[in-house]
Amino acid sequence: MKTRAPAGSLIELSRAGLFRSGRWLVQGVDLTVAPGEIVTLIGPNGSGKSTTAKMALGIWSPTEGTASRRPGLKVGYVPQKLQVDWTLPLKVERLMRLTQKLSSAELRQALERTGAAHLLHAEVRNLSGGELQRVLMARAIARKPDLLVLDEPVQGVDFSGEIEIYEMITRLRDELGCGILMISHDLHMVMASTDQVICLNGHVCCRGTPVAVSQSASFRELFGRRAGLALYRHQHDHEHLPDGRVRHADGSIAESCAGEHCADHGHDPAHDHHHGHDHAHDHAHDHAHDHAHDQAPNHGHDHAAATGAERRGETTHA
């Protein structure tokens, strides 16, 4: 199932697999990323996400199948982590120039784009997780890449920082028009902004739009209860108030909920109910909410909060 014609794509894997140390790390992967498209690879640890990305980037060549890239493809890479040893004096300014020549103006502009301009003279090893991500993203986009590759971009970032970074990624795609290949084991947030999700577990276990994937049987089997949570968080990141208005959990954007979400919303009361119970058990201290739940079953999902943002939603409801 390909979403675009390979002719226009930046990278393409066709039935690609890699055999290493006596076993298949991943097999039979079809993947294309077109300009302006966000493709997210998800899957548990060891499922072949990084291997797939490395084959797509040409770092490893596939044992079977083919990998092709558009000639002259310029890649901007945001690594999962960057541990800078104390022995290495490295300021943000120098890190920005790690693989490229940049004028001061270009450098500053890229940092401003990701909201990290104030970090220009900071030591890299003193940056917080979120700051480092912004700097690494600025470094990658300063290359003016055709393809931006992000490996676990929100690891070590707190929840609100996570939302900001995902919003930034979406914005960068819109502004730069580059294709984005993202690796994630984080299921709930990725879904909002991505065009195509490919779920890996040694092979492609399912693929499609975020909603389609989160509802597919194989995805649920793979992630078990976490899948339920992902679906839950994804669909109920906003709250339908009694007067018909929509309040988003993070409170940031007040646009009405997207059609896709609403279509799936409130469809399966038994299912939602089940979740409510699950979480009520997990969070047994929420007595008040159990009551509220009994009296207002249509909003059962608001109670299952595991995160700060959702807890806020809960409070307003109670």
Partner: peptide, 10 residues
């Protein structure tokens, strides 16, 4: 600084 980054960017 980062072998993966260097590899990805050639």
């Amino acid at each position: 600084v980062s072998p993966e980054l260097a590899a990805a960017e050639g």
